[in-house]
Design a protein around this nucleic acid. Structure first.
Ligand SMILES: [Mn+2]
Ligand SMILES: [Mn+2]
Ligand SMILES: [Mn+2]
Ligand SMILES: [Mn+2]
Lengths: 222, 222
DNA sequence: AATAATATTTAGATTTGCCTAAAAATAAAA
DNA sequence: TTTTATTTTTAGGCAAATCTAAATATTATT
């Protein structure tokens, strides 16, 4: 139930390197963790014994489902602390990572849940990376609908669900293109319409239907 | 310049047990740290090599001046985190210690200075223990003058500097006794007079001279 | 002062996480 | 398909922090 700092760092590194079910090589891990391949092999045996990774000699490794759960919870802690440091302690976005690397290993479950609440359940860290919720769910930022954003959040337009001519005409008139940075000013709960702002224009309103169709990627402050 | 968690815990334990320049015995330390005397001896040799403690075989140990400095800085981190947990994350006063035991080992100097500022430079932790400032200075709570307290702080009257008849008469009239819990409402910078409150009475003003004479001990919230 | 009781240190092991150097397996090239 | 290069594992060791059991020093008691 409780893991060492070293174990947590290995799990995090595997999580970072593991893309689309592919296996992670010993050498890649050694590089990532700035350690020697022999040390990786040693640790992989321990992590396998603890059922955190799937591993057979010479075949590389990947996280088990239990390992993935752990990885998400470490990422959650890391990003919540980064948010805290930037938002409450006035750290710059490039100063938060190092300190969060230490804070993330403080394991009290209660601490993290209360910190999350204190911060207002933020969904993105200062680098724009999504923060997993307490169940480990993570909103992948590539495919978020504009409608899901909240006031003050900024995002980059990166796709459309419905690409009909009418839709494109509307967006052209509003000067919204792929790559346009959009800031949410207000959200009107009555009809879910949004007041938004784009560079070099005055704020304007878009309907719920429009906001449902625009796919964006969250964009950090500066 | 950087110490392990174990080393920090030893230094803290010695600090806690060391009263008035007296030496700390190996057995006492073993008891405090829930470890065996043999382990203590091993570590004392290491700490001596690092010039954190003064130690000669069979004679017990005490902190060097460098060791004391380190101890104070660990205590500072511990108590600032306790304050944060109680004040910002709604932890109860009896829940903070365990979590602070972990947080205190996160060593970023900048983190602690900014946390201190964020919290408004608190001087007492949720148990009423004083928080060392960034230079390691600590206000021992047994002998604080009432005048040094700030608005909203509570304290227990525990002594008098000047015990003249006039002084005692004044205090009797105001119903202030040894043991009375006093809360500071306001401080008037003009003449340093204080508006204070004691149980079952309406608030009233006391002069700077009076407040200079009353010795109090800080009292935590509830 | 001699003996008994207690406290402390040493000797030798263990676990964790890392290392280097050598051996073995796998992948790439001829 | 051999040979060569690369990757990975094994073997053996080291430092930190702990332990148990045995030796030694200190303190207390006759
Ligand atoms: Mn980071
Ligand atoms: Mn980040
Ligand atoms: Mn505490
Ligand atoms: Mn405390």
């Amino acid at each position: 139930m409780n893991y060492t700092i070293s174990e947590e760092n290995y799990i995090k590194a595997i999580f970072r390197l593991q893309r689309a079910g592919k296996t992670v090589s010993t050498n890649a891990l050694a590089l990532e963790l700035e350690t020697k391949p022999a040390s990786i092999t040693d640790m992989l045996k321990k992590l396998k014994a603890k059922k955190l990774v799937l591993y057979s000699p010479y075949q590389g490794c990947r996280l088990s489902s239990e390992g993935s759960k752990l990885a998400l919870s470490i990422v959650r802690r890391h990003r919540l602390w980064e948010y805290f440091l930037a938002e409450k302690l006035q750290f710059k976005w490039d100063e938060v990572h190092e300190v969060a690397e230490e804070l993330e290993h403080v394991s009290s479950k209660q601490l993290i849940e209360r910190l999350d609440a204190f911060l207002g359940f933020p969904r993105f860290d200062p680098h724009g990376d999504p923060i997993p919720d307490s169940t480990g769910k993570i909103t992948m930022p590539e495919l978020v609908k504009l409608i899901t954003l909240r006031p003050c959040e900024r995002a980059r337009v990166s796709g459309l669900t419905d690409q009909s001519a009418d839709m494109l005409k509307l967006l052209k008139q509003r000067k919204i293109n792929i790559g346009t940075i959009v800031t949410i000013n207000k959200k009107f709960e009555f009809d879910q319409s949004l007041e938004i702002e784009i560079p070099e224009s005055i704020p304007f309103i878009i309907s719920e239907q429009t906001a449902q169709n625009i796919l964006v990627q969250y964009e950090p402050e500066s």
